[in-house]
């Protein structure tokens, strides 16, 4: 619970952050809310020599309307998303899911950028972002910017297409507004990571903790599109999944939970009968 030695530097702009990333290379990690990175460091599962603290970069923690999308700054705290009227109106799934992350202390510190960059398959916001068909905005030191669909962003357990010299600056999230949505998070205790989670919005269904990334339940979506009932469609939820077994649940139980939760989110978001 005592981290290995590291240097802590603060930056005030995205440019400074990216420059520092290049300067320190593999040795460095960005630090946002610290609620994934610091626990790993305390367990010495991560031992970065330099922490580039981006939490002081201004203007990166707001939510705005941008045409058909919400523009969400990477440093926006879970708590901000949870309490935002704008988010509740335009992308209600996002605000709801943010409110289910950990406990109030965690939500007051953790940022959406940190959660997505961390790419934990059992985390809530990655699952929601894929369901919302959100886009991850990245910038590199050359000034190059690119936007990657959330669905293509995650590549494996704690890994993504983000390059070492890139950082997340923002997210673009479709304004799903009144489209039906629901999120089911099954946990071993009230405040916990998901044993299994299922998000559904505007006909897209995504499973959390059922593989090494959030997973689009394409079979379910197709079944619904072709007129299946929620219960029938949900039976296909485990297709293409690869859940792990651990102290919280066996793979078999996870597969079962995925079916039940899928049926529930479908019904609650108005799909299938």
């Amino acid at each position: 619970m005592i981290p290995a030695p590291f240097r802590h530097i603060t930056v005030e702009t995205v440019e400074e952050a990216l420059a520092a990333l290049v300067e320190f290379g593999d040795e460095a990690r960005l630090l946002a809310g610290g609620h994934s990175l610091l626990p790993l460091m305390k367990l010495r599962l991560a031992t970065p020599a330099v922490l580039i603290d981006i939490s002081g970069i201004s203007g990166m923690d707001t939510v705005q309307v941008d045409g058909d999308h919400l523009l969400v700054g990477a440093l926006t705290r879970h708590r901000t998303l949870e309490l935002s009227d704008l988010v509740a109106r335009e992308a209600p799934l996002l605000g709801h899911v943010a409110g289910l992350v950990g406990d109030p202390q965690v939500r007051n510190r953790g940022t959406i950028g940190g959660s997505i960059a961390h790419a934990d398959p059992a985390a809530d916001l990655p699952c929601a972002l894929v369901a919302l068909d959100g886009v991850v905005g990245l910038r590199s030191v050359t000034g190059a910017q690119r936007e990657v669909r959330a669905e293509e962003f995650f590549t494996g357990f704690w890994s993504s297409v983000m390059e070492p010299d890139e950082m997340i600056t923002h997210f673009r999230i479709p304004r799903t507004g009144s489209a039906g949505w629901a999120y089911e998070k099954y946990t071993a205790r009230a405040q916990d990571w998901a044993t299994v989670a299922v998000a559904c919005v505007a006909g897209r269904v995504v499973l959390g903790a059922m593989s090494d990334t959030p997973l689009r339940a394409s079979a379910v979506e197709q079944a619904i599109a072709s007129g299946a009932t929620a219960a029938e469609a949900a039976l296909t939820a485990h297709e293409g999944t690869n859940p792990s077994g651990d102290l919280r649940a066996s793979a078999e139980y996870r597969a079962h939970l995925a079916t039940v939760l899928t049926e529930r989110v479908l019904l609650r978001s108005g799909y299938g009968i």
């Binding site: 367990l43 009230a190 405040q191 919280r248």
Partner: peptide, 29 residues
């Protein structure tokens, strides 16, 4: 309902060495 200290039966390694794996419930439970 929640807690159990677990050791790997083959290696004897403790599996519940932090409060992520050792499920102490909290007030909402």
């Amino acid at each position: 309902l929640f807690e159990q200290v677990v050791f790997d039966p083959d290696s004897g390694q403790p599996q519940t060495t932090n409060l992520i794996d050792y499920l102490v419930p909290s007030a909402p439970d």
